[in-house]
């Protein structure tokens, strides 16, 4: 039997669907994990941060973040005595190799690790025209690489500068809060490798999570609260000069 044009037209879409399924593969399941039981966030205890850059390196190793791009990075603030409005901030290579001695003497100096704030009302997901970025049922802001067009709307929309376009795939990239780890009962790579415990993964839906006690007994703030993004990355001891 020879294939007529009619048959060919019928066969092509079928073959395309079949091939799509082959390419997709079968995702690995995490049997004991229930999305509805979690609401993830992070606690950053700034007085403990030593600016070692372990988190930045760990993130890169865990998530194949290309050189020169960051899903998390550390900033060093230098605030002079009389000018809280204009802090001097440096972050050489995202703080990946630590920080050189400060150029300026005196003033107030401290480190601020940054990452996606996994906002509950995230501006980045609101602007996506194709539904490629979304807030998962447990509050993690994720990117569907197969759906992303690389239009950069989300990169522009993020008030915290946490997104970038991957130089190879040309799709939007960001911190996934190590979604592949937290769904397996592990903590994120940055928290795992933080030597001082300055970063702690927090499950806000778990009543036994130490975050609740911590929030009750400390002055905790989020970045840019006036943006009303309902950020879930909480900073302890956040200085007013931090942008």
């Amino acid at each position: 039997m020879s294939i007529t044009r009619r048959h060919m037209l019928l066969l092509l879409p079928t073959a395309a669907i079949a091939w799509k399924h082959v390419l997709a593969g079968t995702p690995e399941a995490s049997p004991n994990y229930k999305m509805s039981e979690h609401w993830w966030g992070m606690l950053i205890d700034l007085p403990k941060c030593i600016g070692c850059g372990n988190c930045v390196r760990a993130c890169q190793a865990e998530n194949d973040v290309p050189d020169g791009y960051f899903r998390t990075w550390v900033e060093r603030y230098h605030v002079t005595d009389y000018d809280i409005e204009n802090p001097h901030v440096d972050s050489p290579d995202g703080g990946k190799k630590g920080f050189p001695p400060a150029k300026e003497e005196g003033g107030k100096n401290f480190f601020v690790p940054k990452l996606c704030n996994h906002c509950a009302d995230s501006p980045c997901t609101q602007v996506c025209p194709v539904g490629a970025t979304f807030i998962s049922p447990e509050g993690v802001v994720l990117v569907d690489k197969k759906y992303c067009l690389g239009c950069r709307y989300c990169v522009q929309a993020c008030p915290y500068g946490c997104r970038f376009i991957h130089p190879k795939t040309k799709t939007a990239e960001k911190c996934t809060l190590c979604y592949h780890r937290i769904t397996k009962g592990l903590t994120t790579a940055c928290c795992e490798s933080c030597p001082t415990g300055a970063r702690q993964l927090a499950d806000l839906k778990n009543p036994n999570d130490p975050i609740h006690e911590f929030m009750k007994t400390h002055s905790v703030q989020v970045l840019k609260p006036y943006m009303a993004t309902h950020s879930k990355v909480f900073y302890n001891g956040l200085d007013g000069s931090v942008r």
């Binding site: 997709a24 995702p27 690995e28 399941a29 995490s30 999305m35 760990a58 190793a61 865990e62 998530n63 539904g131 490629a132 970025t133 979304f134 807030i135 998962s136 049922p137 994720l142 569907d144 690489k145 197969k146 759906y147 996934t176 979604y179 592949h180 780890r181 769904t183 397996k184 592990l186 903590t187 790579a189 795992e192 490798s193």
Partner: peptide
């Protein structure tokens, strides 16, 4: 799976979760 949980592809969640782990955990 589009619309399973919201205005996005529900299968994307499982695909992101299937990434292999590099840090084994203490």
């Amino acid at each position: 799976s589009f619309g399973e949980y919201g205005h996005y592809r529900g299968d994307a969640i499982a695909e992101i979760a299937s990434r292999p782990v590099n840090y084994a955990g203490h």
